[in-house]
């Protein structure tokens, strides 16, 4: 019999895996994996800033929603900064990603030390946002993850023709009357949503793997997009469950890392299967 707490973590991680699997397909095909990594790292100063504001007003430092909203704002700001830098044409996008990722993260680390110097437990659990700690997941967090998964799956299925056209040939899609800016923004919004939702459980360092691994594995096993999308959701969900089980069975193993390692095992297996 699985303890209630483990079950919550298990379902939460499965839902997160499904959501990331769905969105990750299009993130990969649009070449947005590095940008997702930058958004995850850029979220840290937002999380810390939200904790500081919360401490000022004396709110519960363990309440997740304000922290995640702070993270989402900072992540979106990071995304905007990358695109604004690249749009100047003076540095390439990969360099812009490097600059933004590192500087936002460094700002977050400095902020973290400021918060930790404060009394009253304002820092409670903030450092978990870096490497993740799914074990502290509460029932309502698992519910939220489940809703998120459903939303991401419904959104990717509903927007499937648009996202596919955008990822394969954006100019042709534009000529056909697809609004590229809006469609691209919707995709980036979903990527940001998954990155931020994955922060508490998986951590900002590993959250990009949640998007990339199931999708990359599914691509190796599928030659058409609908199959890839379904496989990616399944692999993401199963990775979440197995990772949570493994970490529950080993005292002190971080769940996020276990989920990512399971995902990596699937990826390597798919590589070997598809070598022939």
């Amino acid at each position: 019999m699985i303890a209630h707490n483990t079950l919550v973590v298990l379902l939460g991680c499965a839902a997160l895996g499904v959501a990331a699997g769905a969105v990750g397909c299009f993130a990969l095909l649009r070449g947005r994996a590095l940008l997702a990594d930058a958004m995850g790292h850029a979220a840290l100063p937002g999380v810390v800033g939200a904790a500081l504001i919360g401490a000022w007003f004396g709110t519960d430092p363990r309440a997740l929603p304000p922290l995640l909203i702070g993270g989402a704002i900072a992540g979106a700001l990071g995304l905007w900064a990358v695109q604004a830098l690249a749009a100047t044409g003076r540095i390439r996008q990969d360099a812009a990603i490097g600059v933004v990722l590192a500087s936002f993260y460094a700002l977050g680390v400095v902020g973290l030390s400021v918060v930790q110097a404060m009394p009253a437990g304002a820092q409670a659990g903030l450092s978990h946002f870096i490497l993740g700690q799914a074990a502290t997941m509460r029932t309502e967090d698992a519910w939220a993850a489940g809703l998120l998964a459903m939303f991401c799956v419904v959104a990717t299925v509903a927007l499937f023709p648009r996202f596919r056209a955008l990822c394969f040939d954006a100019e042709f899609a534009a000529l056909q009357g697809l609004n590229i800016r809006v469609t691209d923004a919707a995709l980036m919004g979903l990527i940001l949503l998954v990155c931020i939702a994955g922060l508490p459980a998986v951590g900002l360092v590993l959250v990009v793997a949640l998007l990339v691994l199931p999708a990359a594995t599914a691509r190796l096993l599928n030659q058409r997009l609908p199959g890839m999308l379904a496989a990616s959701c399944a692999i993401g969900g199963v990775s979440g469950v197995l990772g949570a089980l493994i970490s529950a069975g080993h005292e002190g193993w971080p769940t996020g890392a276990a989920v990512v390692l399971v995902g990596t095992a699937f990826f390597v297996a798919a590589l070997l299967v598809r070598r022939a």
């Binding site: 095909l29 596919r164 394969f168 691509r219 599928n222 199959g227």
Partner: peptide, 18 residues
């Protein structure tokens, strides 16, 4: 990107999406 997960028919069918 011709490594995109699609069949020849998928690509042509995208012209009919609108």
């Amino acid at each position: 990107d011709w490594d995109f997960p699609a069949s020849a028919l998928d690509v042509v069918a995208m012209a009919r999406t609108p």
